[in-house]
């Protein structure tokens, strides 16, 4: 499998990664080279094989629903690039004037 420049641009946007000039070609070539190796997975017959997501086979780890100490609002916001009135500041996700 090879990746085209358009695919790199698409995947980068899905991953929320801005690209620098010339990076589409750079990553198209490198990722294609890696995918060439990964394509060998196609040689393995996995028809009757279940997938493994977690190897220690634990399930349903439960705990009592009891309030535990947690960070203060001040601690939680201490690393924020911008905070105001006890909130994280996020850029607008809607137009100010929807017209």
């Amino acid at each position: 499998m090879t990746l085209s420049r358009d695919q790199v641009r698409h995947v980068a946007l899905l991953a929320r990664l801005g690209l620098k000039d010339g990076e589409e070609d750079f990553y198209a070539e490198q990722l294609s080279h890696i995918l060439e190796h990964i394509d060998r997975l196609g040689q393995v017959d996995t028809e009757a094989i279940p997938p493994t997501a977690q190897v220690v086979e634990m399930r349903n780890v439960m705990r009592d629903d009891v309030i535990q100490p947690s960070l203060t609002q001040e601690e939680a916001l201490a690393n924020a690039p911008e905070a105001r009135d006890g909130f994280f500041v996020v850029k607008a996700i809607q137009d100010a004037d929807p017209g």
Partner: peptide
């Protein structure tokens, strides 16, 4: 990040991610 996003993206999930999880079982 791009490789992982690609492997999980629509149309490629079964061929890459699910396949890899099955090979992990093996």
């Amino acid at each position: 990040l791009m490789l992982g996003t690609y492997a999980l993206s629509s149309g490629y999930y079964d061929a890459y991610y699910l396949k890899a999880m099955k090979v992990r079982t093996l």
